[in-house]
Amino acid sequence: MEFGLWQVWEAGWVPAILRGASITILVGLVSMAAGLVIGIVCGLIKWARIFPLSLLVDAYTSLVRGVPELLIIYLLFFSSVEFVTRVVTAFGYAGVAESGYAFVIAVIAIGAISGAYSTEVVRGALGAIPNGHIEAARALGLPGGRIFRRIIAPQMLRIAVPGINNVWQTTIKDTALVSVVGLQELMRISFIGANSTRHPFIFYLIAAVVYLLITLASQAGFDGIERLLRLRTRK
């Protein structure tokens, strides 16, 4: 049987794929936001070498960046499954929390991974700020909070944009991995489509194209942001 794009459309897969894509983007955005918060806090700790905490941050970033993402997802998923089902059934909500639960695990896993990479980006950006700027601010008697807000943060954000772009691209691609725990995002939908129609080629090809469109669009967006920030600096 011939099975092409038209059959995919006729069988009603297009809305499902679009819904999957929007869940992929949602997981990506929420995880990225969580990752940025982790990255800024941990990056500051690493940069300022706040003693006992910086050891913890070092352990966190080298562990997460050295161990496969899939293994981290398995750890979080399997270790929490039992715990969560016990809690949920104790409150009499068995089955209700299923879908939201996979989303939460996905965000925790992907957020932790993207946080580790963001930490390195933030630390690198902080290191690139000339020391003299901070010394000058201190000499003017600015309080610590205002030095961070007025001197450190604006420069750090500008320097970090290309690195953040890289982390975002990796994050959106990593969301495909949470399909293994059953979250109905783009990859999972394609998997279901491929299995139920027995035409995997077209479904995975569509998934690849949608991911490519997402990464190309965000690349264009980041190019725009970089251009915008460049205008405001003196040559």
Partner: peptide, 22 residues
């Protein structure tokens, strides 16, 4: 651009499950 813009998992599935159809 294509290989860096799509997840490795999609590429692996496309090769393993998809190509055998052609």
């Amino acid at each position: 651009n294509v290989f860096r813009g799509t997840p490795l998992l999609v590429q692996i599935f496309l090769f393993y499950y998809g190509l055998g159809q052609l």
